[in-house]
Design a protein around this nucleic acid. Sequence first.
DNA 1: CTGCCGGATTAACGAATGTTATCACAGCAC
DNA 2: GTGCTGTGATAACATTCGTTAATCCGGCAG
Lengths: 242, 242
Amino acid sequence: MALSDYFIRYLERRDQLSAAERARLKALKTRQVRFNGGDVIVARDVIVDQSCLMLQGMSARVHFLSRGKDRVISALHVPGDFVDLHGFVLAGLEHTILAMGPTEVEFVSHDQLLEITNDWPHLTRLLWMSTTIDAAIHRQWLVAAASLRSSAHLAHLLCELYTRLSSVGAARDYRFTLPLLQRDLANILGYSPIHINRAVRDLRERGLIRWSGTEIEILDWRGLVALAQFKPDYLDMEQLSR
Amino acid sequence: MALSDYFIRYLERRDQLSAAERARLKALKTRQVRFNGGDVIVARDVIVDQSCLMLQGMSARVHFLSRGKDRVISALHVPGDFVDLHGFVLAGLEHTILAMGPTEVEFVSHDQLLEITNDWPHLTRLLWMSTTIDAAIHRQWLVAAASLRSSAHLAHLLCELYTRLSSVGAARDYRFTLPLLQRDLANILGYSPIHINRAVRDLRERGLIRWSGTEIEILDWRGLVALAQFKPDYLDMEQLSR
DNA sequence: CTGCCGGATTAACGAATGTTATCACAGCAC
DNA sequence: GTGCTGTGATAACATTCGTTAATCCGGCAG
């Protein structure tokens, strides 16, 4: 898979691209970089001059808290996501982007994004759209956090991740790799690691999942969806013109 | 205060506008509408052809849950906010927008936004930026939900709202109007209404706030900020060129 | 004025979650 | 192999939060 093909597919699932637009995206000059788990992909509070697209693996937006070594993860990114595109219009990030497990990303300079936003209004609206889908995911996480108990909350995250991963071909047959520790899940869902362990056990005992190490198999998709009250419409997979 | 002046000020706090850009924004044809508390300003799942700017009052993004009358609020909006601008690029909303108390908004047609995005790239980036600030607020709510206990969590919301309200001149002297019931706060923070009441009592007993009806006075701003670990940088008030 | 209604407040109790501690187990350095 | 380290699993107990119920108060219809 070369260049930003993943991202082009991401856009084409949601709107039509003209041949010229597709060619313009493919003409982007990018710099591909590999990272290991725990590496900083983009540091916070630095004025950035590039944004990164996920090619392989998983990354997270991490907020470090003042005291102690506590941290909170506000977003996870999978292949095809334009992880810090919002840094282009905000001119900086208020969080750090960390590699979760081995990852590959490609960086696009803001100079080139500036050109696209100057000359390609429809493409610009699609780039903009991709950041608003991220925001819709943030909102759904807020809804899940406010309305679900631990097991259901964890189930919701698994449903979302499987949906996102399988839509880019990074998962199938209800199996996927989740390169996260239970401590990371605690930082995402806002529970203690011990309580995450209880939630995992609960999902296992309900016969909904099999989970060993970083490999997860969903044994009962409908049951998991029902428990999580998962409705994937917020991921906005519809084809619409914008 | 006429038209989108609030929003122009919102943008000008973050970047410079040319005279032509300012004129273009002022030339927008809008439709001003008043709502009463509880009114639906924008319904979910409808293909919308306009977006709304807050002029007065407060509105909320509300997610209705399937069973029961439960609902979750994922965002609050104050004067100057372009509440559902993301509906322009998403071609629809996955939530409802409700008036919290008496409000006044003005609607801008998507036709006009389409013209701006076709002809005014810098303005387009600023409109885009305003939606990414909303997303940054979502993230901060996620961080607060994951890391703060009830009183501190409520304190964080109060700090954010006072900061946002005072920055548009809708609050001063550490006093502001919060047109929300304790039940609404429960829907925002993800607690039961009774527990919200406990949190309010706790903040009162600590001498941090005075709160009667919809009127709030912050007695100890620094104490409230410390309890909430509030750092307003995510509201992105810096002047930068984009 | 009287009565009704919804929201705020409080108490008592139960459920969910955090904390501390311990153990098992796998990976890895030596 | 041996020991060290980090993660997962589990238990016991403490704290936070939800639920139910009761009371108080203000607004408002009559």
